[in-house]
Design a protein around this nucleic acid. Sequence first.
DNA 1: CGGTGTCTAGG
DNA 2: CACCTAGACACCG
Length: 568
Amino acid sequence: MALCPRRGAIAVAPVLDSEPPRAPALVGVALCVGGDAGYAPLSPATAEALHELLAGPRPKIVHHARDLDAALRRAGHALGGVAGDTALASFLVDPTKCIPHELERVAREYLQRALPTARDARGGAATFAEADPAAVAAWAVSSAVATEDLWTALVPRLDELDARKIHDDVELPLSGVLARMSADGVRVLPDVLASLQRDFGARRAEVEARVHELAGHPFNLGSSKQLGEVLFDELKIDVVKRNKTGYSTAADVLERLAPKHEIAERVLEWRALDKLINTYTEVLQRAIDPTDGRVHATFQQTAGASGRLITTDPDLQRTPIRTDDGRRIREAFVPRGGWELISADWSQIELRVLAHCSKDAALLRAFNERLDLHRQTAASIFDVVEAEVTREQRTVGKTVNFATIYGQGATALGQQLGVPRKRAQEMIDRYFELYSGVRAWLDRTIAEADANGYCETLLGRRRMIPELRSNNWQDRGYGERIAANTPIQGSAADICKLAMLQIQRELDARGLAAKMLVQIHDELLFEAPPAEVTEVVAVVRERMERCVELAVPLEVEVGVGPSWAAAH
DNA sequence: CGGTGTCTAGG
DNA sequence: CACCTAGACACCG
């Protein structure tokens, strides 16, 4: 049986209808959407047929269960009885090996088997519906059989890594939560976006005219090559930085030129507006499903090497917030009629994870006594008492606090802060004087990763780091930064996953109508009817703050409002 | 048309 | 040479 909805195909091996499955306890199911991750709306008839086909008592093994689940949910069904997800298993066995863990790639790695791709199955045809049914069926069979075989191959590896529990208790149930979020979507008002786009478009046109005037002739502002020629050949502005293909016109270069050259400032303005139009107002309007006025993003669970979730189609995690113009995009994100949006985000979760892992005395004290950590760091770097730390100094303290998480060196820190490399090195030295426990933890963690070949997160998720064994010192340095960063970033991701699971269970158990809509790494967005807001806020805060017990408290900031902009 | 480079958005 | 990313556009072959 091979079913073909509008976009892509749901492939369910025909052998399962006509022959006994090869392992009686398992039913392999492969869902492939045009060869991409993602979810395709199903026709009611297709969904009905699939639902019936999958309703049997046998546990199912699915590759990307989330996609199948989301597709069924949109059609009013749910996917039950999934015992294993081979994409999640592959991700847990080695997160970076087969990114994004599509079936063909995973089967090649762990079964040494070449599968026909969705593309092969389509032949020259644009859609599965127009393709040769025999080819589609053959592809469906091989995909489903491979899924079943993969599970058999991957389970011993999961057990070896002690990762079966993470699969069963965290990642697999989370895939169901993500499917619901994707199927529910978030309401976005096209009129707000259209109005913003008109405003941005008019301003972009004005700025563009001014740039052409300053240049003396029109050119394509979107081409950094042409812009470079105008700035550095024609206008003879001093070259600041070069890249592989010529002059760099990146934002940091233009910012340096802006005080003396109006054209640089205008180009920055043009780029900001151009980005907002092309990447946000236009894309989001297109992404709104006309049947429900909502945006149904995909939450990828097997794409972030550190274990983070990734949103695509559209990429909601990169919705602007830093500039006033950008933030206005968030005014278009609203709750369903009469409801409220609730935004909840962890305060400094990664630095708290660092405090927990390192047990550094100064970090523990700062968080346990609710001190201002960035101020504390700044006071040390600038050798002043905390009360005398200026706002600029505090910003530097913040930068240095984050720099350690990333393993940033003096060169890059100096560049970022606009101070000499030597001064940056002094700051780093002062940082590690104050936080000597962090230095010790970094050294210990890197040495351990070196010995083991992998690093580990709070929940015991592993990331292999082959770079640590490289003969190339640059690769080894990269491996060391991964070894230091992944436990922090990955553990924060683990915490967020646990919180999401607990919150969804609690909302269900209490029979609340409120919905979890989007995850933005350290922020969760919900919508709730007015009567539920107080209870939902309490549940969300409680679960986010207490889903794990760390050596420092987790703090959560919650906002409620009629739009994402207002709730944040 | 697919691949690469540059640039910019977020945490 | 700062970690994890997605995506738009220009440009090249």
